[in-house]
Amino acid sequence: MCLIAIAWRRHPRWPLALVANRDEAHARPSAPAGFDPDAPAVYGGRDLVQGGGWLQARGDGRLAAVTNVRAGLAAEAAPRSRGWLVRDFARGDAKADRFSAALAGQAGDYGRFNLLVHDGERLLCASNHPAFSARAVPPGMHAMSNGPFDAPWPKGVFATRALQAWLESPLADAAQPDAESIEPLFTALRDTTRAPDDALPDTGVGLALERALSPPFVLDPGYGTRCSSVVLVGADGLLFAERRYDASGVATATSIAMLDRPA
């Protein structure tokens, strides 16, 4: 997952609203959004190589999402997959602050990560690069990509503005969110406009790659955006929508699930 925009306590109906793009090698096997066969209350995509996930949630509002941190071209070697953080939080019951406190001592065992966790009440972000840190996310609009949390990267600014515009529109108040009402969010996530050079971050990968990775939707036959997600967390449950793409950027399927909050 390489782009996440978050609206936290900005809308009366949706205390947490999230849109995201997952960028990954197209050849890497993964399962589309669905219920985890080993944890039936957990819904989301699954990495079939390491067994973790990039965005997973439950009907009680528990949610976790992860991105990698870009820092040069050197390959990472880590004994633990960052996708396990998503899997372990989504399956567990620890509060967000306790989960992050327990993570502090072993954070260096994972590949470079930015992590977002929501326990149904609190939203927290954590990272292990350049050193471990964790903090509560204040109410507002936020973005998490492959650099520091809330870094003003063009793709993050674009995605947060699109999410805010949707929340301020009548579509966010639809009686029952459906494919038509959330389509503007998927349209925004499909934007392939590259950022101007003077707005690009310098993450040590060179100008050509910075340009290629700068749009919200990364279009490349080898490594690019594999899926877009929309998650809306409300008092009664959670909407989780996912649109999947092939290596040429053509949408192949869209799924929408409503996860009810347990009684």
Rank of each mutant, 00 (worst) to 15 (best):
A75E: 13
A126N: 10
F35V: 02
W166Q: 07
L185C: 13
A247L: 08
R9Q: 15
G206D: 09
A20S: 14
L73N: 12
D47A: 07
G83H: 02
L209H: 06
A41K: 05
S127L: 06
S248M: 10
V233T: 04
L73Y: 00
A162N: 02
L55G: 00
A175V: 13
L115S: 04
I256F: 05
A41C: 10
T193D: 11
A165N: 12
R46Y: 02
D197I: 07
L103I: 12
D198G: 07
D119L: 11
F217P: 02
L115F: 05
P148T: 11
E183I: 00
A235I: 03
G53R: 08
I6E: 12
L115A: 10
N128K: 03
R161W: 00
F217C: 06
S100T: 15
F158E: 04
P15E: 06
L163F: 02
A57P: 02
C125R: 13
C125T: 14
Q50P: 00
Q56S: 14
A102F: 01
F99C: 09
L115C: 07
A101M: 05
R91L: 01
R10S: 10
W153S: 03
D220E: 02
A57V: 15
L259R: 03
R161T: 14
F186P: 05
E121Q: 15
R9L: 12
M144L: 15
Q56G: 14
R194A: 15
K95L: 14
F149M: 05
L48G: 03
S100W: 04
P130Y: 08
S248N: 11
A126D: 07
G51Y: 06
G156L: 14
F113R: 04
R22I: 01
A257P: 00
L171C: 10
I182A: 12
R46L: 00
F217N: 03
